[in-house]
Simulated assay, not measured.
Amino acid sequence: MPAKKPTRTLRMRRLAAELRRLRDSADLTREDVTEATRINGSTLYRIEYAQARPQLRTLHTLCDLYKVSDDKRDELLALTKNSGQQGWLETYPSELPTEYTNYILFESEARTIRNYESLFVPGLLQTEDYARAVVRGTLPLATDDQVEDRVRARVKRQELLHRSDPLRLRAVVDEAVLHRTVGGPRVMREQLLHLATMAKLPHIELQVIRFGAGAHPGMPGSFVLIDFPDPADPAVVYIDSMAGDLFLEGEVDIDRYSLMMEQLVGLADSPDSSRKLVASMAAGMMEKDKEAAE
Rank of each mutant, 00 (worst) to 15 (best):
Q158M: 14
R210E: 15
I226T: 04
A110L: 03
E287N: 13
A171E: 06
S270K: 13
E287C: 01
A78K: 13
S270E: 13
H216L: 07
V224N: 14
V172A: 07
T34Y: 09
D174W: 13
H179S: 00
A3N: 06
L44N: 05
A293K: 15
L167P: 10
V182F: 06
R256F: 05
A268W: 13
Q86F: 02
G244Y: 11
G244P: 01
A133L: 05
M281N: 00
Y45C: 08
I226K: 02
M188K: 08
V172N: 05
K276Q: 11
I226C: 01
K5F: 03
E31C: 01
D165S: 10
L169N: 13
L22D: 06
K72E: 14
R38F: 10
D64W: 00
L125S: 01
L79P: 02
E90Y: 03
D64E: 08
V147G: 00
R152M: 14
T29S: 13
I226Y: 02
T127V: 07
D269I: 09
S69Y: 11
P231S: 08
N102Q: 05
F120I: 15
D227H: 11
S274I: 12
D70K: 12
H194W: 10
L22H: 05
T181V: 14
T143F: 12
F247D: 08
V173F: 10
H203V: 03
